[in-house]
Amino acid sequence: MALGYSNTERVYDELLLRRVQAGDRRAGERLAARWYPRLMRTAYRLLRDEEQARVVVQESWTGICAGWRKLRDPSRFPAWAYTILHRKCADQIRTSQRLRGLTSSGAEMTEASIGPRGEDKVSIDQAFDQLSEAQRSVATLYFGAGLTVKEIAQVTGIPVGTAKSRLFHARRHLMAALGDGPNDEGE
Rank of each mutant, 00 (worst) to 15 (best):
V149F: 00
D73Q: 14
H86F: 12
Y12M: 10
I158K: 12
L15V: 00
Q52F: 03
V149H: 03
R98H: 09
R69M: 05
L46C: 05
V11D: 12
A81S: 08
S113I: 07
S137N: 01
L3G: 13
K121H: 12
G63W: 05
A2Y: 09
W35P: 02
T103Q: 12
T162A: 11
Y5R: 13
G115A: 10
I152T: 00
R34G: 03
K70P: 02
M175V: 01
M109R: 15
G67W: 06
E50L: 03
I152C: 14
G179F: 02
D180F: 10
R172V: 09
Q154F: 14
T140W: 10
G4F: 15
I158M: 12
R98E: 11
V155M: 07
E108V: 11
R10E: 04
P37T: 06
T162F: 07
L16H: 03
T42A: 13
V122R: 15
W80S: 08
F128S: 01
G161Q: 06
A107G: 01
R38M: 13
Y44A: 07
A139R: 11
A32S: 14
A81D: 05
S60Y: 00
T140I: 07
Q130F: 00
E9Q: 14
D91A: 02
G28W: 09
W80E: 12
P182H: 12
F128W: 09
Q21L: 08
T62S: 10
A27N: 04
T95K: 15
Y142M: 01
T148L: 06
R41Y: 05
H169F: 09
I64W: 01
R69A: 05
L147C: 07
Q58G: 08
E111Q: 09
F128G: 01
T42R: 05
T8C: 03
R19F: 09
Q58N: 06
D125P: 01
R19Y: 08
K164M: 11
M109T: 15
G118D: 10
Q92N: 04
S75F: 03
P37I: 06
C65I: 00
S6Y: 09
Q97A: 15
L47P: 11
R76S: 13
A22E: 14
I158D: 02
L131K: 02
S96Q: 14
R172P: 00
Q126C: 05
V56L: 04
L131T: 08
V56P: 02
C89G: 01
L71A: 08
G4E: 15
N183A: 02
L3E: 07
A22I: 00
G144M: 07
T156P: 02
D184Q: 11
R87Y: 06
A176S: 12
Q130M: 04
S104C: 05
